[in-house]
């Protein structure tokens, strides 16, 4: 497994600053690819540390209604995996530091060709890949395809994961460990899972890399709470919900930036509080 070095650099900085990382998720091409291309650098300026860039899929079975809608809007606009890789290259040209993670279901990668996908994603400046329907057991071919390029696989752990599976993900993955904070699909929830602390404790004891907590985080308060238990937070559906409420593109853009600022500020405060 080869690394671009961007995650390592970021983790060092976060550790020096003593705060959790903030990783927004965006569905690329929602409402259009140019919008996403402009938004990522703006969100970086607003306080985001790295990005999960979602490739839309016709059958997103790990996603709730918000990301399903975003995916459909993006597909209707003609977004493809190739165009998302081009988008990453465009963003990378002006945003050198933040890690960018492509999140895509497995079938679009199969259609693209595993080796071609890994080579082109790495060349564009992506640092890692999350494939929600590809657990480590089935990822052998992807490992092989990414062996030659600086691209890492990120795997998920869930409330149901056994100790054996925590060990497997520890051994197999790169980047951060993605902790799925609630049972079920993606989507903003009014409260975090009550057993979040206990579950993360189990992982924190044995983890060999930082843990980012995602699924269900909706408010700055929840982000601060999750950030205090893990090493970073991922916010996707809540960010898309904020943009969906606005009609005009520029209003969506501004609302997204303000939301990320509010999350970052809550994460900063949680650091000074502890």
């Amino acid at each position: 497994m080869q690394s671009s070095g961007r995650f390592e650099a970021l983790f060092e900085r976060l550790s020096a600053e003593g705060r959790p990382g903030l990783y927004p998720f965006l569905t690329a091409g929602d409402p259009n690819l140019d919008f996403t291309r402009r938004l990522i650098p703006a969100l970086a300026a607003a306080g985001a540390d790295g990005f999960e860039i979602g490739v839309p899929f016709s059958d997103p079975l790990a996603d709730g209604p918000t990301i399903q809608r975003a995916s459909m809007r993006s597909l209707e606009g003609g977004t493809t995996l190739r165009r998302v890789i081009d988008l990453v290259a465009g963003v990378r040209a002006e945003t050198p530091d933040p890690p960018m993670v492509l999140m895509t279901y497995y079938n679009p990668i199969i259609a693209f060709g595993l080796k071609e996908f890994c080579a082109e994603a790495a060349r564009a400046g992506a640092d890692a890949v999350i494939v929600p329907d590809l657990p480590p057991e089935e990822a052998g071919e992807l490992f092989e395809a990414m062996a030659e390029v600086p691209l890492e696989p990120i795997f998920m752990l869930a409330p149901t994961s056994t100790d054996a599976r925590i060990d497997l993900v520890n051994r197999s993955g790169g980047g951060f460990i993605y902790y799925v904070a609630q049972m079920g699909v993606t989507g903003a929830r009014d409260s975090l899972a009550s057993d979040l602390g206990g579950a993360l404790e189990r992982i924190n004891r044995v983890k060999n890399r930082p843990v980012a907590v995602g699924f269900g985080i909706k408010t700055p308060e929840q982000a601060a709470e999750a950030g205090a238990l893990g090493d970073g937070v991922i916010v996707g559906s809540a960010l898309i919900d904020v943009m969906e409420k606005e009609e005009e593109e520029e209003e969506k853009f501004g609302a997204a930036c303000r939301f990320i600022e509010s999350l970052r500020s809550a994460l900063e405060k949680s650091r000074t509080a502890t």
């Binding site: 079975l61 790990a62 497995y106 929600p132 329907d133 590809l134 657990p135 057991e137 089935e138 795997f155 998920m156 752990l157 869930a158 409330p159 149901t160 994961s161 056994t162 599976r165 993900v169 799925v180 049972m183 079920g184």
Partner: peptide, 21 residues
Amino acid sequence: KGRFGTFGGRYVPETLMPALE
């Protein structure tokens, strides 16, 4: 691993993996 030749497998989100095991 429950494959038929190269077909089959278990391509699901992590949350379901323990239940399938």
